[in-house]
Simulated scan of single mutants.
Amino acid sequence: MILRFFLFIALLSSCFAACREAQHPQQEYHPKKKTVKKVTAVKQDTTQRDSFCIAAVGDIMLGTSYPDNKTLPPDSAKGSFKNVFNELRNADVAIGNLEGTLLDTGAPANYRLHQLQRPWLFRMPVAYGGILKDAGFNLLSLANNHIGDFDDAGRKSTMHVLDSLGINYGGQVSHPTSVFKVNGVTYGFCAFAPNGYTLPILDLKYAGRIIQQLKQRCDIVIVSFHGGGEGTAFEHVPFGMELYVNEKRGDVNAFAHNAIDAGADIVLGNGPHVCRAMELYKGRLIAYSLGNFCTYRCVSVIGVCGMAPLLKAYVNKKGEFLSGRIIANIQSHNHGLEPDSLGRVITRIKMLTETDFPDAGLTISDNGLIMPVKE
């Protein structure tokens, strides 16, 4: 039995691809009481406007102090977003997927198991929360498979830090949604994943109810999901249930359409660590995966995994998509996040969109401009 156990552990470790992250058991939760946090944003704008900007990026992981400080950036992450400050700070809403915890000390969940294989455990120092705030992020998704790397201590510390900074968030069963106001517009946010203690991506009816309730209270509803397989083999949307390491990762096309049917105005995907196509559905924008954005050292940034788009989507007060722009960036382990003058991620997303959604309802130009197709 002992020999079989170690053979199983070795087989599991070999499944980790170049862009692989640690997994946690899939669980679905249906809380009886939905916690909604209401935050009044600092930004104020009394002028009449007909468009509002949502800046969206994929995975954010600014370095981990586990197992030691060798995997923390030498500048304490202060320069992580220096090349995109203006794009993030000038948006009404700037959102990313926080792929890990904000926690200074503590042992990981399932500690003994992680001693038998290489760990992918993300514990960002608490002080790094200020880096996110200073960059302009006012909304983060906590629905992913790394928010639980350090069990309840990590989840609670992360939420406490974001609360103290006035950064809105959602996706945890204990805090599924946020409602907040920026420049006279009321936004609602929720996020879903196939992982424990997160809102379940696999239950479309439940997701629809959460989104519908938000839309009744808000002008614009933003939905994030963490779904799909991981790595370079998963750039395309498969239009069916995705499995990865024997875990159901959701039917992301069905989820996104269901979300918009229920009242979502923009749907933003993450999880595959590569970019995926975009689509316009019922006048609302879907980005099926925004890939990695700022992931120091412990996440592969080789090839397409290093392409780091910053999406700027402009919507009206009803949430209808007006236009957008993909700002091309690229990551390397030596230089971090940098502008990409070659625009490689624009070319990639354009190709994936034209391949997977020939009737996507939008066009992407070579310089990253996204426009709805006029009927």
Score class of each variant (00 low, 15 high):
V39W: 13
S323E: 14
M124H: 08
Q212T: 12
M278S: 02
V223N: 03
L165P: 05
T355H: 11
S341T: 12
P309S: 09
K78L: 11
P25W: 04
P31R: 06
K317E: 14
M371L: 15
I266Q: 06
Y29Q: 08
C53T: 13
S174T: 13
F137T: 03
S323A: 14
D203I: 02
P176A: 03
V126M: 00
H335L: 10
A17S: 15
A259F: 05
V223W: 10
H160G: 03
E21N: 09
V84S: 14
L7Y: 11
T353D: 10
I260V: 13
L121F: 00
I222A: 02
S164R: 11
G229W: 01
K78E: 14
A135N: 04
H333E: 09
A18R: 07
G100C: 04
G170V: 08
K34M: 14
F255T: 03
Y29F: 13
G283K: 07
A360D: 10
Y281C: 06
L121T: 05
I131R: 02
S289H: 05
L285M: 10
K70L: 12
V161R: 00
R123W: 10
V245M: 12
Q23I: 15
A256W: 06
P339Y: 02
L369V: 14
I327E: 11
G208M: 01
G229D: 04
G319W: 07
Q27H: 12
G96Q: 02
A193E: 01
L268T: 04
N83C: 11
V237L: 01
G263T: 07
F150L: 01
F16S: 12
D219W: 04
S289L: 03
F180G: 07
H24T: 03
A22N: 10
Y206N: 06
G250T: 01
Q27V: 09
Q213A: 10
G196S: 06
A328W: 06
V267R: 04
G100S: 02
M278C: 15
F255A: 03
L103D: 01
I9L: 14
G196Q: 10
F189Q: 03
S300I: 06
V315E: 03
Q26K: 05
G188N: 01
P194S: 05
T295S: 06
G188F: 05
F137G: 03
D366W: 09
I260M: 07
G231Q: 01
M124N: 10
I167V: 08
T177E: 15
S365C: 04
A287W: 06
G231T: 06
H236Y: 13
Y296M: 02
F239R: 12
R217Q: 15
F225T: 04
F137S: 00
N83V: 13
L103C: 06
K317S: 07
L204C: 03
L362K: 02
E247H: 00
E230N: 00
P125S: 05
N168G: 05
L352E: 09
V161Q: 01
G170H: 07
K181S: 14
S365E: 05
N367K: 11
N195H: 14
N270M: 05
L204M: 08
A107E: 12
F234M: 07
G240I: 01
E247Y: 02
R217H: 12
F180E: 11
E354N: 14
A56P: 07
F8D: 09
G79D: 12
S13W: 08
Y296N: 04
K32P: 06
D261P: 00
I349N: 00
G208P: 00
